[in-house]
Design a protein around this nucleic acid. Structure first.
Ligand SMILES: [Mn+2]
Ligand SMILES: [Mn+2]
Ligand SMILES: [Zn+2]
Ligand SMILES: [Zn+2]
Lengths: 164, 164
DNA sequence: TATGAAAACGATAATGATTATCGTTTAGTA
DNA sequence: TACTAAACGATAATCATTATCGTTTTCATA
């Protein structure tokens, strides 16, 4: 779906709760839509949105992100560095997607497919817990870093192809 | 396993990296062992540990928790309120356990069983990502709050069961 | 046992992300 | 046009965490 159409949908979501899509909010959403792969902090968003709306204040960015989070348009996530990051939900998704965090290069990538279907059935049944959402993050070594490590090893000399 | 024995094991882990188990560190670990179900913030730990070692400083608590985290004795977790929480790993566990967070009463409970075995096989294969650890948290309504809501509904009278 | 270096510590200042405050602007309505 | 509430921008306040620094403890060695 085009950015324009998703913006319209978000506009409807705001209006349905009698919030306005002000120019500042629109510019902020635009930044999120145009950087969907990234995981921007409030400060990141602020710097990017200043190009579109130079007069915007940091407080407004925080307020807007908080609002979008309440409306479940974005998820507020935390990867353990000291800042919150704001992650647009995938089109049509009604819950947070999964993440892969590389402990070597720091790269964060996404898994859009929901892998928790069966697990959630089990949790609801065996723990009597009604699940509304989830957060799943894997920490490990991304494919790129695995390859880099292999090359390094080859340069050094003979070696086993893989160790677990 | 008794607190004493787990303390000894942690002592060995520290020594194996040539760290000392100072009285302050021992008191801090004791607090963690005696409150294993809880998810204490640094400040929480500080207040509890003061009973055992009244002269301890907050900075030392932070340093100790950081050290225990590096040694993978505790996991530093974040539930979205503004503080980090320190969660002792279960005996013999080599990764973080799962959590259930109730969006109504705020209660946090634990799932000790690892539910991600098959999911991780799939992720490693299909995303070429070497998993070292994971974080899985479910947000929803705990069994207690489900019961409470049922009672409330009955008192109020007839009504639609759910309006998402 | 005395000594010297490194590791830890306690107190507290500094940092930095987030939130609160407050006066001003904007949008919608009578 | 005038009124009211929602939003905004600037900036002060808050508060968790980290950095600094002088002191204490540990421990290997003379
Ligand atoms: Mn994401
Ligand atoms: Mn836990
Ligand atoms: Zn990587
Ligand atoms: Zn509950």
């Amino acid at each position: 779906m085009a950015v324009k159409e998703r913006m319209d949908y978000i506009k409807k979501q705001l209006h349905s709760q009698s919030y306005k899509l002000t120019p500042q909010r629109e510019a902020t959403v635009e930044v999120l839509l145009e950087n969907e792969e990234d995981h921007l902090s409030a400060e990141d968003v602020y710097l990017l949105v200043k190009d579109k709306a130079p007069e915007i204040g940091l407080a407004t960015v925080y307020r807007t992100l908080e609002l979008l989070n309440e409306l479940e348009i974005v998820d507020k996530i935390n990867f353990g560095d000291g800042v919150s990051r704001y992650d647009l939900r995938k089109e049509g998704a009604n819950h947070s997607h999964h993440h892969l965090v590389c402990i070597q290069c720091g790269d964060v990538s996404e898994i859009e497919e929901d892998l928790l279907g069966e697990v959630e059935v089990k949790v609801e049944r065996e723990w009597q817990f009604k699940i509304k959402d989830h957060r799943l993050t894997f920490h490990g070594v991304c494919s790129k870093c695995q390859r880099d490590k292999d090359s390094t090893n080859e340069e050094v000399g003979r070696q086993t192809v893989d160790q677990l």
